[in-house]
């Protein structure tokens, strides 16, 4: 096994009885990278993470973290992992500080200064009991918990859901700093822009199978956007025919609707010849991206 790989799975498969978890998943996460794990809900992202953490055992295949088999060396692996669960069930009867102190003790101690710093940056109130905390505030606590020990690998399952935008930015900075420190980050998400923003590479999972692993620039080059341009007056159809990377052009009076792949340059320049009132751009859903690039539908029988 290459020294460079932090996570390596080999045809990793998990079935819950007859229900599909993940199927024949082989991938590699390299040291020092931020790896995005992108897929819709129910695709098998949490199953993968829980297999890597040895909460559940593979039906077939195997996985190694830091070159250690996950089922045989879970304690040695956990020592070097910080984990943010997707499901935020914490100990309701504790305050944030009590919870973090408990978790720190179970790891064998953490420099409390780093907890205070993280709490300040994420604007987390550690004095309140967890019982009354909102989703976002609980999320802050598990983020602190994952980062506080400066682990070699940080595993985040849908980490930013529930965070308000400012805190989300701070979280992205934390990820960037972790990368700068040489830490590896594995981040699962169903939000494409988030993955594009913080990750170096992304694994795309759908219905339990890894569809592709892409560098972020390559993914961006193929980014799909729904575009709606409102003009001051009706525009001629010919002006928008045969533009590079533009499809599904539809013009109704003064409104142009189209789908753009990759750069928006061509369509924007074409539109600039007329008076533009408004431009609306929609990120496509993950499902649309899958259908466009990875030919969904064939793998429905999982």
């Amino acid at each position: 096994m290459a020294n460079n790989s932090v996570i390596q799975t080999d045809r990793l498969t998990k079935f819950y009885g007859k229900q599909r978890g993940i199927v024949d998943l082989s991938m590699e996460v390299r040291r020092g990278e931020v790896f995005g794990y992108l897929g819709p809900n129910g695709a098998g992202k949490t199953t993968t993470i829980r297999l890597l953490l040895d909460f559940i055992r593979p039906t077939r295949g195997h996985a190694a973290v830091f070159g250690l088999d996950t089922t045989a060396h879970s304690v040695a692996i956990h020592k070097r992992i910080g984990y943010v669960p997707g499901e935020l069930s914490l100990y309701d009867n504790m305050t944030g500080a009590q919870y973090l102190r408990y978790m720190a003790s179970l790891r064998g101690g953490v420099e409390w200064k780093s907890v205070d710093t993280l709490a300040q940056r994420l604007a987390a109130d550690l004095t309140r009991p967890l019982r009354g905390l909102s989703h976002g505030n609980k999320r802050k606590l598990v983020l602190i918990q994952a980062f506080m020990a400066r682990p070699d690998l940080i595993m985040l399952d849908e980490p930013s859901s529930g965070l308000d935008p400012l805190i989300q930015q701070e979280f992205y900075r934390l990820v960037a700093e972790a990368k700068a420190n040489g830490q590896t980050v594995f981040l699962s998400s169903h939000i494409l822009p988030e993955v594009e923003r913080v990750c170096d590479r992304v694994g795309i999972i759908r219905e339990g199978r890894l569809m592709a692993v892409e560098e972020i620039p390559a993914l961006k080059a193929r980014a799909l956007r729904r575009l709606e341009i409102h003009f001051a007056a009706p525009v001629p159809k010919e002006a928008f025919a045969n533009l590079a990377g533009v499809r599904d052009v539809l013009i109704e009076n003064s409104i142009l609707r189209c789908t753009a792949v990759g750069s928006l340059d061509a369509v924007i320049k074409a539109a600039a010849r007329f008076e533009v009132v408004n431009v609306v751009s929609h990120e496509p859903s993950l499902e649309e991206i899958f259908l466009t690039f990875y030919g969904g539908g064939e793998n429905n029988a999982a």
Binding site: Y83, E87, S89, L90, M103
Partner: peptide, 14 residues
């Protein structure tokens, strides 16, 4: 059942 076992077992403990 409360869902707290995940964060507990994520610690380096047998």
């Amino acid at each position: 059942e409360r869902g707290t076992l995940d964060v507990l077992l994520a610690n380096p403990l047998e």
